[in-house]
């Protein structure tokens, strides 16, 4: 029952949504909008509660046991409690000016910092990728060299057709390869969905 019921529900809901996509039926469309979409929203809200409990359980336990780097857990729990208090008890909740000011002066900056770290990682990964270890790696190095030169003014100054060669590599070779991969990925995605829909994929379900 613990496996059969979720599989049956998945099949019924999945097929209903598919029929609603391809065929016109006002009552079915209303059912999908009113009930299926709402069920999804409600279950996601419950999941956020579960996720928060999981997060708090891990970090409070770490603080209690004074595990390595427990100080970071303290900062997480304190920040969580402050934002929870501001979001729940202030007038206007998450739209409250104080909440917004507090959030906007912390979170976007931390996010931008992490994003900016990427440029250093790209440099170190590119250094490893562009070594002439094999024929394929050499070809990749040459292509990258041409494309980089084709995208900066000095490339055209050194060799005028460089931007055209760069565009040709991007539009002909790169695009066709990516499209082939995209077709394969789409087919794979459909196959995966179908396996879930008919209950072939059951690893994530509990035992009977």
């Amino acid at each position: 029952m613990r496996r059969t019921l979720p599989v049956a529900l998945t099949f019924i809901v999945g097929v209903t949504a598919m029929i609603n996509t391809y065929f016109v039926n006002p009552s079915l469309a209303a059912f999908c909008t009113r009930y299926l979409a709402r069920t999804s929203t409600v279950s996601s809200a419950w999941a956020v509660g579960l996720g928060t409990l999981n997060l708090m359980r891990i970090h409070i336990r770490r603080i209690n046991r004074r595990q390595d780097n427990w100080q970071y857990s303290v900062s997480l729990v304190v920040t969580y409690v402050i934002f929870l208090f501001l979001g729940v008890f202030l007038v206007g909740h998450q739209n409250n000016h104080f909440f917004q000011a507090f959030f906007n002066s912390i979170q976007p900056h931390l996010s931008s910092t992490m994003f900016s770290v990427l440029c250093f990682y790209i440099a170190s990964a590119a250094f490893r990728a562009f070594r002439m270890r094999s024929m394929e790696a050499t070809m990749m190095l040459l292509s990258a060299f041409i494309i980089m030169l084709g995208n900066v003014p000095i490339g055209a100054a050194i060799f005028p057709p460089m931007p055209q060669i760069s565009d040709w590599i991007m539009n002909q070779i790169n695009t066709s390869s990516l499209r082939a991969m995209s077709i394969g990925l789409s087919m794979g995605g459909i196959a995966q969905t179908m396996r879930n829909l008919v209950g072939i994929e059951r690893g994530h379900l509990a035992a009977e």
Binding site: I122, A125, A126, R128, A129, L178, A180, M181, S182, G184, L185, M187, G188, G189, A191, Q192, R195, E201, G203
Partner: peptide, 26 residues
Amino acid sequence: NNNSQTPFFIPACDYCLLGEELFAAS
């Protein structure tokens, strides 16, 4: 299954599944 991220995984990882190999895994 995000094609634009596969080129980042290829140099940084020891092994990288290409395209639909992710969906063939199970």
